[in-house]
């Protein structure tokens, strides 16, 4: 996974609450067997007119947001389906950071597994950013995971909270599985039934 330390980029708005992952990547693209190329499918049903012609009324198609890499969003972003295709598409499109007041749990997790930083700010801070973004074409933000700050060129400097362990993993781009496999002996112990509270297992083969 590519690490995330600091990112500076053009901001694009997604001014809707409860954007679900069915919108981020519609189901017709869930039949792929690789992780590549999902950028084209991002917000597909909103983004394109029939024949995959860009819909000029969809915000990401506005010329001023071309090349955006920071997505400013509203509450409960990424709700619904667990599809990891959603962060794959965001990343492949070019988004490295998201800023929103809240996220759905599974989506939030999935971002960290893919080198995307989901920044959580207070409602009024996010509302403020939406205003700034509307007022200034080319509005750019820096998101720094090391210092846990969001800054802009006019002196805005806000701290954000993130779980220290998630932060460390993302800063280093650590492979989760590799981390877990360091505990191989503990996993093997658990499997040998050394945890007295472990559950009752049913048979793993049905009777013939």
């Amino acid at each position: 996974m590519q690490p995330f330390k600091k990112h500076r980029g053009l901001v694009a708005p997604m001014d809707r609450v409860n954007v679900d992952t069915d919108q981020i990547v519609p189901k017709q693209f869930l039949k792929a067997i690789t992780r590549e190329g999902f950028g084209r499918t991002l917000f597909y049903d909103w983004r394109y007119l029939p024949g995959e012609k860009p819909n000029p009324e969809f915000v990401l198609n506005f010329p001023r947001y071309k090349g955006a890499s920071v997505l400013l969003a509203r509450a409960n972003f990424g709700c619904g389906s667990s599809r990891e295709h959603a962060p794959w598409a965001l990343l492949d499109y070019g988004f490295r950071a998201i800023i929103a007041p809240s996220y759905a749990d599974i989506f939030y997790n999935n971002c960290f597994k893919n080198g995307i930083l989901p920044v959580t700010l207070a409602d009024d801070q996010v509302a403020d950013l939406f205003r700034r973004l509307e007022q200034k074409e080319g509005y750019t933000l820096s998101v720094d995971l090391e210092t846990q700050t969001v800054t802009d060129d006019s002196g805005l400097n806000w701290k954000f909270e993130v779980d220290p362990f998630r932060r460390e993993c993302l800063l280093n781009g650590w492979d989760d599985i590799g981390l877990t496999l360091r505990f191989e002996d503990k996993i093997a112990d658990y499997e040998k039934g050394r945890n007295p509270q472990a559950p009752v297992f049913g048979p793993l083969e049905p009777p013939r």
């Binding site: 667990s82 990891e84 962060p87 999935n110 989760d176 599985i177 877990t180 996993i187 499997e191």
Partner: peptide, 14 residues
Amino acid sequence: IGTSEVEHVLATQC
């Protein structure tokens, strides 16, 4: 869980 976690469970059962 997401697909990365599916891979994690396949590999480690944890």
